[in-house]
C-alpha cells in the first residue's frame, strides 16, 4: 500500500486495439485511486471500455501504456508467471456469466483457487465450507453448477473469488444475468463484504447496483467523465427525502 492508502492505483493507463484508421482507444489515459475498503462502481454505455479497464486493473490484460499498482506493487510489467500468481492470490474476479467449472461441485469450485495457491486440501476444504456458509449455500456444497439457479451460481462465484482473501474483488456486470430477487442477494453479499473492509470494483449497467457503491465513476470513450461520491451525502432521512404528504 502507498502513502494514500490506495489498494488499487492507475496512472496514465491506456489500452489500444488495432492501428491507423482502425485504432480503438478502449481505455484512454485513465488515472484512478481506489482506497482500501472502498466500493467503487464503474458505469457507462456499451463499448466505453469498462471491461477493458477491469481487466487491466486485475492483470488479465496488459496496458499499452501507463501503470497499475495493486497493494503498492507495479503489476503492469510483471512476467507472465508472476502475473498469473498475482491473479490467483491477490485478485478475485466475478463475471456476468459466472464462469464456474461445470464438472466440479460448488465446494470444489471454491476449493480450487485455494489449492492452486499452494495450500493444503484440508485448509481448502475448511475455507470453502466457511465461504459457502457465508453466501448462504452450505446446503448446496455438493451440487454441480447446472443444478443451481443463476443467483446461486453467482454466489458460488463470489465465494470462489474470495477464496484467497484477495486485496480487491473485481466484478464485471455481476447481476447482468439475474432477476431482481437474485440481484438483491448479490448486493447483500457485497454489502457484507464491504462492511468487513473488502475493496470492491464493480462494473454495472444497473443504476440500483451502482447506487449502493461509495463512489461511482462514469466512462465515455475510454475516459472518466464523472466521479461522484455517494455515501454519507444524502440530506435528511428517507421520509424527508421521499416526502410523505399530509
Amino acid at each position: 500500500m502507498n502513502e494514500f492508502g490506495a489498494v488499487l492505483q492507475a496512472r496514465g493507463l491506456a489500452k489500444e486495439h488495432g492501428q491507423g484508421q482502425g485504432l480503438v482507444r478502449a481505455v484512454d489515459e485513465v488515472d484512478l485511486d481506489v482506497p482500501a475498503g472502498q466500493m467503487l462502481a464503474v458505469t457507462g454505455p456499451s463499448g466505453c471500455g469498462k471491461s477493458t479497464l477491469l481487466h487491466l486493473l486485475g492483470g488479465l490484460e496488459r496496458p499499452s501504456r501507463g501503470e497499475v499498482r495493486l497493494a503498492g506493487r507495479r503489476i503492469d510489467a510483471l512476467s507472465e508467471r508472476a502475473l498469473a500468481r498475482l491473479r490467483r492470490r491477490s485478485v478475485g474476479f466475478v463475471f456476468q456469466a459466472f464462469h464456474l467449472v461445470e464438472e466440479l461441485s460448488a465446494r470444489e469450485n471454491v476449493e480450487l483457487p485455494v489449492l492452486l495457491a499452494g495450500r493444503s486440501p484440508r485448509a481448502a476444504k475448511k475455507r470453502a465450507a466457511m465461504l459457502l456458509e457465508r453466501v448462504g449455500l452450505a446446503d448446496r456444497a455438493r451440487h454441480l453448477p447446472w443444478e443451481l439457479s443463476g443467483g446461486q451460481r453467482q454466489r458460488v462465484a463470489i465465494a470462489r473469488a474470495m477464496a484467497n482473501e484477495p486485496a480487491v474483488l473485481l466484478a464485471d456486470e455481476p447481476t447482468g444475468n439475474l432477476d431482481t430477487a437474485a440481484t438483491l442477494d448479490v448486493l447483500r453479499l457485497f454489502e457484507g463484504l464491504r462492511a468487513a473492509g473488502q475493496t470492491l470494483v464493480i462494473v454495472t449497467h444497473d443504476e440500483r447496483v451502482a447506487a449502493t457503491a461509495d463512489r461511482v465513476v462514469s466512462m465515455r470513450d475510454g475516459a472518466f467523465v464523472d466521479d461522484t461520491r455517494l455515501a454519507g451525502h444524502a440530506t435528511g432521512g428517507l421520509g424527508e427525502m421521499f416526502g410523505l404528504e399530509y
Binding site: 451502482a210 449502493t212 444524502a234 427525502m241
Partner: peptide, 24 residues
C-alpha cells in the same frame, strides 16, 4: 443534467440500502 443525476444517484443509494436492509 449531471448535477441532477448525482443527486438522484445519492437518493437511490439511500433507498436501495434501505431495500437491502428489509427482510424478504
Amino acid at each position: 443534467v449531471d448535477a441532477q443525476r448525482r443527486e438522484l444517484m445519492r437518493r437511490l443509494g439511500e433507498a436501495q440500502r434501505a431495500v437491502l436492509a428489509e427482510p424478504d
